[in-house]
């Protein structure tokens, strides 16, 4: 039981790190970006190439995955995404699906369509027994890293100058512009960091989530759930939503394997019936 809980938390934290950028871009620019999972996939494959082919140590590859995905995000934001902010949601959906459709064959063209595993250091394969709970070292690492990231993000958003600019811009971009905040720069930064975090999450989660070219579509709804259920008001909502989602998905698949992911979709529909604006949305917020 507790092992499931543990696995679920690890899984949920991964989802949070991948999806938190998405919730900010949605809140900030009202952008529906269905290609967000492609950045996570990019991070995963960057790590595969670095570790498996070039022999870079796993722990050195993780920051590289972050940086390279962030760079990729920055370039995409400045060249492509910047043109679709003012377009309708329908056009944003088409545009980002188009990117997904391009990313998937591109990956299988260069790296093959079979599932890839990252060679991780041997000590991460060990399991610990603590009070009867069996905990894999690899999942412990995920919880540790993602927990630190979540705390760091929360600190940045709540306490720093950049964070207050970000919150102001999410609340009302017009007013924020009036206050002299460079909303475009805030957004480019956020988009890049969000992509980088997605890439890092993809790298950390590659072996857990299963890395193959269908990744962006397979997890598209999961990322959207984190955002829609968690709301885009801050970091806490998406984090709680992601952990709940992780626990529900892991225990659903464990206790009711015959239902597969059925359980999670049904749960999401019930939640949205109950609270159409998300579990943690502020009243009157967007």
């Amino acid at each position: 039981m507790l092992t499931n809980l543990f696995d679920g938390v690890a899984y949920g934290m991964l989802l949070f790190v991948i999806a938190c950028g998405l919730s900010v871009t949605l809140g900030l620019m009202n952008l529906i970006n269905l290609a967000h999972g492609a950045f996570a996939m990019a991070g995963g494959y960057i790590t595969v190439v670095l570790v498996n082919r070039m022999g870079v140590p796993f722990f050195a590859a993780l920051p590289l995955a972050f940086v390279l995905s962030a760079l990729l995000g920055l370039v995409m934001e400045r060249t492509l995404y910047v043109h679709v902010y003012r377009k309708s949601h329908l056009e944003q959906v088409m545009f980002s699906i188009g990117l997904v459709f391009m990313a998937m064959p591109a990956v299988s063209f260069f790296l093959g369509s079979e599932q890839k595993f990252i060679t991780v250091p041997a000590f991460l394969d060990t399991r610990y027994e603590v009070f009867g709970v069996s905990m894999g070292a690899y999942r412990l690492l995920i919880i540790l890293v993602c927990g630190l990231l979540a705390a760091g993000l929360q600190f940045i958003v709540a306490r720093t100058r950049f964070g207050s600019q970000l919150r102001a811009a999410v609340d009302d971009p017009m007013v924020a512009r009036g206050l002299g905040i460079r909303v475009d720069a805030v957004f480019a930064t956020t988009f890049a960091v969000g992509s980088g975090l997605a890439g890092l999450g993809g790298a950390l989660g590659a072996n857990l989530l299963g890395l193959d070219p269908t990744f962006p579509v397979k997890y598209m709804v999961y990322f959207l759930i984190v955002v829609a259920v968690g709301g885009s008001a801050g970091m806490t909502g998406p984090l709680v939503a992601a952990i709940l989602l992780g626990i529900a998905d892991v225990s659903g698949k464990y206790y009711l394997p015959q239902f597969g992911s059925f359980f999670i979709y049904a749960l999401m529909i019930v939640v949205l019936l109950w609270r159409p604006q998300g579990l943690f949305a502020r009243p009157g917020g967007r």
Partner: peptide
């Protein structure tokens, strides 16, 4: 097909 979608929007 994906490229066509992106181009149609942009």
């Amino acid at each position: 097909i994906g490229m066509l979608l992106v181009a149609l929007v942009l």
